[in-house]
C-alpha cells in the first residue's frame, strides 16, 4: 500500500529558496575559511604522516592466524570463518593431526588456509565467529602485491603476520 508522506508546510520565506541557498553558501564558506586559516586539520598526508602510533586496539587490518603460548596452532579448521566470510575470501582445507604429533588430541587442524586479500573487506566477521580465538585482525593495513597470487595469504604468511597470542582460551591445555 502506498504511504502518503505528509510534506511540511513551507512559509513564504522558505518558499523563496534564496535565503536557504545563501545559508548553504555561508556554511561551506565558513568551512573554507577555517581550513584556509589553518584552524582545522582533518586529513593526513599519508605516506609521510602515518596513523600507526594512534591506532586503536580494535583496528581492523589484515586478518591473520595466531599460535598459542605453547606454539600450537590455535586454528582447528572448523571452517566457521569460511562460512561467515561475506566476500568468500577464506578457503580452508581441513586435515587430521597425525597420532604421533604432540597435539594429536586436538585431532584437527588446517592443511591449507588461504585468505584472498583482494577479496577481504576487513569486516572482522572471522574474528568474531572464531570459537578457538585463532584468527585476529592485526594492524597491518598496507597489503600490496604485484600479482593476484601474491595477494593470497597462505598459512605460513598468516602465521607470520599473526604471531603468538597468549592467554584467552585454555581449552586444549593439560589443566582441563
Amino acid at each position: 500500500m502506498a504511504i502518503v508522506v505528509k510534506r511540511p508546510k513551507l512559509s513564504i520565506f522558505e518558499k523563496m529558496y534564496l535565503p536557504a541557498i545563501g545559508k548553504g553558501l555561508l556554511i561551506t564558506l565558513s568551512h573554507a575559511i577555517k581550513i584556509l586559516r589553518g584552524k582545522k586539520k582533518v586529513t593526513m598526508q599519508y605516506p609521510e604522516e602515518k596513523w600507526d602510533a594512534n591506532m586503536p586496539e580494535h583496528y581492523r587490518g589484515a586478518p591473520a592466524l595466531v599460535k598459542d603460548e605453547q606454539g600450537r596452532e590455535r586454528c582447528v579448521s572448523c571452517q566457521l570463518c569460511e562460512f561467515i566470510c561475506p566476500p568468500r575470501a577464506i578457503k580452508i582445507v581441513p586435515g587430521e593431526i597425525p597420532s604421533d604429533d604432540p597435539w594429536a588430541k586436538v585431532e584437527k587442524r588446517p592443511k591449507e588456509f588461504d585468505i584472498d586479500m583482494i577479496r577481504c573487506i576487513y569486516c572482522g566477521m572471522c574474528e568474531e565467529v572464531c570459537p578457538e580465538q585463532a584468527i585476529y585482525l592485526r594492524k597491518d593495513y598496507a597489503i600490496t602485491g604485484l600479482s593476484r597470487e601474491e595477494m593470497v595469504h597462505d598459512k605460513e604468511r598468516l602465521y607470520e603476520i599473526g604471531g603468538v597470542r597468549e592467554g584467552l582460551v585454555n581449552k586444549w591445555n593439560e589443566l582441563k
Partner: peptide, 9 residues
C-alpha cells in the same frame, strides 16, 4: 567423511 567438509557447506 571425517574432517573432509563441514556439513553446512
Amino acid at each position: 567423511f571425517r574432517f573432509q567438509m563441514r556439513v553446512w557447506f
